[in-house]
Design a protein around this nucleic acid. Structure first.
Lengths: 107, 107
DNA sequence: GTAATCCATAACCAGGGAGTTATGAATAAA
DNA sequence: TTTATTCATAACTCCCTGGTTATGGATTAC
């Protein structure tokens, strides 16, 4: 299971791309032009990043005339949340087991 | 804030490296040799990945004789959990605001 | 109809990073 | 002491990707 975390990690690893995603989360729907304005990179670069984000299921696009509006997609981060939860769970479980063992040795 | 998520995302983006980290989470402390055995890559590659994981604060190492034991570091994922929580919070807040607006318009 | 705007795609380039083999330092075993 | 084991580092290669400029299609404005 969990081929999903792979794509998510890879997609969010790039700072520029992650910044775009963060802006969409904070400020809601934005056009490509608006995103390009404060991204520090060219418009084609932004378009490529948006393509990657879309393919990872992190954003949606909505065409309206000659401009495209992008918005963050709630729930897309769930696999990531699940993964971190699992990892945290594993060492927690081992700590519990250790705790148990110590208690039994103590008796 | 949050230079930490950047390093974490970058470090966990590589599948081989993430697999090593997962094994350390699931099965606890491991030597480099043990990790290399089922990693599918050479020992130097594993060592490099472990170096990256260590630098990101994701693992600890413990030298014992001529072998080095690595273990996952609980709490290292916290910045990641915080970040996802923030992102989820943003759109949640906007949904609430929208809900509010609709309610007021309804009255 | 013509000009201007918005965006996506193509083509290309450069840097980084993940992999390899070779090697050496440190420790354990003989 | 000599040999074998374990790991880290160095040096190198190759590919992937994020950036660029150039361009074109679609839409809006004049």
């Amino acid at each position: 299971m969990s081929a999903a975390p792979d794509l998510l990690f890879r997609t969010l690893a790039d700072p520029t791309r992650r910044a775009i995603f963060e802006r969409l989360c904070r400020e809601g729907e934005q056009t490509v032009g608006a995103l390009t304005a404060r991204s520090g990179v060219s418009q084609p670069a932004v378009s490529k990043h948006l393509g990657a984000l879309k393919q990872a299921g992190l954003v949606r696009d909505r065409h309206e005339g000659r401009q495209t509006h992008y918005s963050a997609r709630p729930g897309a981060l769930n696999p990531l949340i699940d993964w971190t939860g699992q990892m945290a769970g594993f060492w927690q479980r081992r700590l519990d087991a250790l705790d148990d063992l110590l208690k039994r040795m103590d008796q």
